[in-house]
Amino acid sequence: MVGKPADAGAVLEAHDLCLRFGAVEALKSVSLRVMPRQIHAVIGPNGAGKSSLLNCLSGFYRPQSGAVRFMGEDISTLAPHRRAGLGISRTFQGIQTYPSMTARENILSGFHNRMKGGLFRALLYWGPARKEEEAFAARAEDIIEFLELEQERHHPVGDMSYGMRKRVDLGRALALDPRILIMDEPMAGMSPEEKGDLARFVLDIRDGLDIPIVLVEHDMEVVMDISDRVTVIDFGQVIASGTPDEVRANPAVIAAYLGGEAA
């Protein structure tokens, strides 16, 4: 499967993705380009195809046609764990933490894909294995500090508030040392205060860690405040793409959200 030539400078690209489930077309020639240091939001009504697009980008779905490229390389056939190994990290709508483990232990679990030593070397716990574990422990502490989880470090995640658990989930995604972060409705179910905190961390990830982000989110106020570019999907098709101001004023977007007819 061959797509269009890679766009210069793009981190992650989708070209003409078509995804069908039987007679249902979830995606119809959807294209997307995420640039460095960019928060690229994907919005649309419920059932528009947003999560299907994220699943194609991260490898959980294999589209019938089209291509996905990462740093200019075609990754359309790579499995999810191979994409994670390249630096594509993902958070999901639901919380994927281990409730009986502490915040620190959950974040440490995110390093598994970066471990180079085998089981035998890990059991011996000497030389490279020990240095690797010490490096991961130090990096986990950096993530804990970055996400302001110091007070929750040794608390079981199952005892934490919803917002804190989502923050730990984000910390585990950062443990992959991602080159891009894909976030599927990270603020769903949060209070306004929790949303404000997470929005601040999303901006810090872009600005402080230099990690571009693909964000699916229903809170339009947050999307318009923090995004650099917005792609709008409706019924599996891209109906608009541009800056938040351009998208906000687009008649097709207004029609999709308000139920009227595009001018």
Rank of each mutant, 00 (worst) to 15 (best):
R90E: 00
R90C: 03
T91Q: 04
T91A: 06
F92T: 01
F92L: 01
Q93E: 05
Q93K: 00
Q93H: 01
Q93N: 04
Q93L: 04
Q93W: 03
G94F: 08
I95V: 03
I95N: 06
Q96P: 02
Q96W: 04
Q96N: 09
Q96C: 08
Q96F: 06
Q96G: 06
Q96E: 14
Y98T: 02
Y98K: 03
Y98I: 14
S100H: 13
S100F: 10
S100E: 10
M101I: 07
M101S: 09
M101Y: 11
M101E: 11
T102N: 03
A103D: 00
A103C: 08
A103V: 13
A103T: 11
R104P: 06
R104F: 10
R104V: 09
R104Y: 12
R104W: 10
R104Q: 07
R104I: 10
N106A: 03
N106D: 02
I107P: 05
I107L: 02
I107T: 07
I107Y: 13
L108Y: 11
S109W: 02
S109L: 13
S109D: 04
S109K: 05
G110F: 07
G110R: 02
G110V: 02
G110I: 01
F111A: 12
F111K: 07
H112C: 15
H112I: 15
N113Q: 14
N113S: 15
N113D: 15
N113G: 14
N113E: 13
R114W: 03
R114H: 06
R114G: 07
R114Y: 07
M115D: 03
M115H: 04
M115V: 14
K116R: 12
K116N: 11
K116P: 06
K116A: 01
K116H: 08
G117D: 06
G117S: 11
G118E: 01
G118K: 11
L119A: 10
F120Y: 10
F120N: 13
F120E: 09
R121P: 10
R121A: 15
R121G: 12
R121Y: 11
R121V: 09
R121S: 13
A122I: 03
L123H: 10
L123C: 08
L123N: 06
L123A: 09
L124F: 14
L124M: 15
Y125I: 09
Y125L: 13
Y125F: 15
W126S: 15
W126R: 13
W126F: 14
W126M: 15
G127R: 10
G127I: 04
G127S: 13
G127V: 03
G127Q: 09
P128H: 13
P128Q: 12
P128Y: 12
A129Y: 10
A129V: 09
R130W: 08
R130H: 07
R130G: 01
R130A: 09
K131L: 15
K131Y: 14
K131R: 12
K131G: 13
K131H: 12
E132H: 07
E133C: 06
E133A: 09
E134W: 08
A135C: 05
A135S: 11
A135V: 04
F136W: 05
A137H: 10
A138M: 04
A138D: 09
A138K: 08
R139A: 07
R139L: 05
R139G: 01
A140F: 01
A140H: 01
A140E: 01
A140S: 05
A140K: 01
E141T: 07
E141V: 08
D142P: 02
D142N: 12
D142Q: 14
D142F: 06
D142A: 09
D142S: 13
D142H: 11
I143K: 01
I143M: 01
